[in-house]
Design a protein around this nucleic acid. Structure first.
Lengths: 211, 211
DNA sequence: CTCAAAATCCCCAGAATTGGGGATTGTTGA
DNA sequence: TCAACAATCCCCAATTCTGGGGATTTTGAG
C-alpha cells in the first residue's frame, strides 16, 4: 500500500506541483489538498492520510497552530512541516506542537520523499541544518547535570511509583510487599535524596531525571 | 579536499572495517584510529580531523565522557556518535555533551557517509529513529506550555510551593495565609488537575510544565 | 454598580505519611 | 569466610493530608 499524503499549502502552484510529484512517484499518493489550516481542520477525516505536509506561512491560522490542533484531535497523525522558515522560534514551536519532521522547501524532491518514507516507518525527519539547530536548542533548554544518588534497584522502582502518584498501600499491592517494607524503602530513599516528603522526592526525581 | 575522519572504537575489526571503507570511498580518508577515549584524548592533535566517529561502550571512559572532554578542548571539533545504544539517557547525554550527530551501527555505509558529509557541511545527522526520540525528549524538556488547566494565580503559586516540597504549614507561613486557606486552594487544584494527592499534583505539574 | 469569580477562613473525621526504634534473610565482594 | 549491603517485615507516636461540609470578604469585568 502506498503512503497517502495530504498537503496544506496556500500557494496553488506549489501545492499542485507537490501533489503531481507525489502521484507520479511509486509508493506515494496524494488525494487531499488544502489551501489553509482552517480548510484542512474542517475537511480532514477518516480515513486519515498517513502524513500531512504542512506549510507555515498562512494568512489566517498559522501552520504551527494547525499542527497543534490536528495533533490534539488525531494524536497519532504524522505531520511534517515543509517551509521556507528556519528560525529557532518556528522550529521550536512546530516541534513542541507535535510535528514529526521539519523540512525546508529548498530540499530536493528525493530528500522529501525519503523523509516521508522514514516518517511513515515511525521515525522523524529533519534536514541537516534544521537538525543542527534542534540540537543547539536542545542543549539550551537541557536541565542541569544529574548527580548520582546510587539508589538500589528496588528503591528506584519504588521511586517510580511515587512519581506516578501511588500511596504506600498502592505500591505495596503493586509490588506484593508489606506496607512496612515500602515504608522502609521510602525512608532510605529520603535519606539518599536528602528529602523529607514524597513531594520533595518526586520533584527531585523528575528534575534530576532519576526516573 | 577529502573529509578526514578519526575513529574511536574498541573493536579492532569494526574499527579497521570502517577505516578501510572510508579510505576506499572518494571524498573520505581516515588516518587516525583509537581503541579508547583515553588514547584518543592523548594522541589527537593538530591538524584535527574534520569529524570524530565515536563509539560509546568502552571499558574505561565512556564515549559520552569522551565527547565532553574532546569538545571542551576543541569546541569546534565535530563528533558523531556511532553506537548500538538507542536509549534516551545515552542519546540525551551524548547530545548535551556536544555531539553533532548520533548514528546507529546498523546504519548502512551509504547512510553513514551521507551523514558525515552533512556534518562536514555544518549540519547535524541522526538516524530517523533517533530523531524521533530526540523530538520526544525535546518536548519533554521544553519550557512552559500555555495550555493550562486554568488555575488561578494563587493556585499556581501554591502549586509551585507544592513542587518545592512544602507542607501546608510551610506554604501558609510563606504566603501569610491560614492553613485552612491553603487547604482550600489545594482542594481546588486537585479538582482542576484531576488528582487526589500532592504527589500526583507535583508529578502532573512538572510533566505538563505548569510551573 | 453588580455579580461572578477569586481568595480568604473555619470544623471535623478518617486516612496517610513521617521518623524513630528494631529484626531477619539472602547476596556478594574482598 | 565474613562484613556490608539489599531486601524484607514489625511497632509506635506525632504529624500531615484528604475530602466532606460550610462561610465571608475582595476583586475585576461588564
Amino acid at each position: 500500500m502506498s503512503i497517502s499524503v495530504a498537503i496544506v499549502e496556500d500557494n496553488a502552484s506549489i501545492r499542485d506541483g507537490i501533489a503531481r510529484l507525489l502521484n507520479a512517484t511509486p509508493g506515494f499518493r496524494c488525494n487531499q489538498k488544502y489551501a489553509s489550516c482552517e480548510e484542512a481542520l474542517q475537511s480532514i477525516k477518516e480515513p486519515l492520510p498517513d502524513i500531512v505536509l504542512m506549510d507555515i506561512g498562512f494568512d489566517g491560522m498559522s501552520g504551527i497552530e494547525g499542527v497543534r490542533r490536528l495533533k490534539q484531535r488525531y494524536p497519532n497523525l504524522n505531520v511534517v512541516m515543509l517551509t521556507v522558515y528556519d528560525d529557532n522560534e518556528r522550529i521550536f514551536q512546530s516541534l513542541c506542537s507535535g510535528a514529526s519532521g521539519y523540512l525546508l522547501k529548498n530540499s530536493s524532491p528525493e530528500v522529501v520523499m525519503a523523509a516521508l518514507t522514514e516518517v511513515h516507518r515511525g521515525g522523524a525527519a529533519m534536514t541537516p541544518s534544521i537538525a543542527k539547530k534542534v540540537l543547539s536548542l536542545f542543549r539550551s533548554i537541557a536541565p542541569a547535570q544529574t548527580e548520582s544518588h546510587n539508589l538500589t534497584k528496588r528503591e528506584t522502582e519504588i521511586l517510580e511509583h511515587l512519581v506516578a502518584g501511588s500511596s504506600y498501600k498502592m505500591i505495596a499491592d503493586a509490588l506484593n510487599l508489606s506496607i512496612e517494607t515500602v515504608h522502609t524503602h521510602i525512608k532510605r530513599i529520603y535519606g539518599k535524596l536528602q528529602v523529607h516528603s514524597k513531594t520533595e522526592a518526586v520533584s527531585k526525581a523528575l528534575r534530576q531525571r532519576l526516573v
